[in-house]
Design a protein around this nucleic acid. Structure first.
Lengths: 167, 167
DNA sequence: AAATCTATATAGACATGTCAAATAATCATG
DNA sequence: CATGATTATTTGACATGTCTATATAGATTT
């Protein structure tokens, strides 16, 4: 069927896609400025452990989207660095629970501090009215984070997607 | 000198640090959900090239905070994948300019689309009043992005910091 | 124009991240 | 309780990301 030129205005530019673009740009910028001392995988792992508590190796693997032996060796490394520890899983003797150590928790907290310090610095550069609008949006931002967590904890990872451009 | 208990309320909890925390959490969540198909370094490189146009190898190295030969081999790889191309620098025959190819631009755009789609989905899950507050904060968000860009383009990278927790 | 500086590339090394296949321990089920 | 499924580890392979030291070509300075 042919595509006729539509009379209606574009059905809605995705409703909130401009905000989404601004937020994504912010994510990209912050990531590009943050220290590059750990890999994405390590950062995500530590975040998950802090947010959701001790996790099984297999669960981490699906959550991270990598193969399970990869997590075993990742945990080996992190354990060796003292950031995480393996504990027995009381409900299943085959499994282990990977948990943050105190040092690991400190590491995550320190890293977050670096990020928030940067953002505070940026926000402090805003004119008063914009800063106010941002504060007014705080509940919304927190809600978005909460939704993102739910989304992340679901099995669903974003497909590697992108694809086409690679060839 | 001894620290007396202060009568004043804490001088201001960093003014905007709660917003900063929410934004940082969002960054962390989004990064954790985004496809893991490229490294931080590649992502940052492509973003810089898209945002700021063709760049010298040396400039990329300082911008990324890695050694120059690392960028040479990174560019080798990206060039091999067809995402960037080396061009002669008209102002200096020693130098090269690394530029995005059409495919590279497409790749960045597609990847951004994945991110904004995710964020649109999240924002669509907000109650109407929160969504409104977020839209009202759009200029502020855009301004923060602009400030972040200025910040990123300055030579200053955040120190690897964090440090202490590692031992 | 010689000496020095600068931009990139090359070489060689090493840690990290990743996978698939095979193994060992334990669980769950018929 | 024996068989099949699940959990983690081990093994062995390979790509990536990173560095330092060195080489090469072109700029810049004196």
């Amino acid at each position: 069927m042919l595509n006729e030129v539509s009379d209606q205005p574009p059905p809605e530019p995705a409703e909130g896609s401009d905000v989404a673009l601004a937020l994504y740009s912010l994510v990209a910028m912050v990531v590009g400025i943050m220290p590059r001392d750990i890999s994405l995988t390590v950062a995500t792992t530590l975040n998950v452990l802090e947010r959701a508590g001790p996790q099984r190796i297999t669960h981490l693997a699906t959550r991270l989207g990598v193969a399970q032996p990869s997590v075993t060796s990742l945990v080996d490394k992190l354990e060796h660095e003292g950031l995480v520890a393996r504990r027995a899983d009381p409900t299943d003797a085959r499994g282990v629970l990977v948990a943050l150590t105190a040092a690991g928790r400190r590491y995550v907290r320190d890293r977050r501090q670096v990020g928030t310090d940067l953002l505070v610095e940026l926000i402090d550069g805003l004119p008063a009215d914009q800063a106010r609008s941002l504060r007014a949006a705080l509940p919304a931002l927190e809600a978005v984070v909460a939704l993102a967590q739910r989304r992340a904890d679901g099995t669903d990872r974003l497909a590697t997607a992108v694809g086409e451009a690679q060839r």
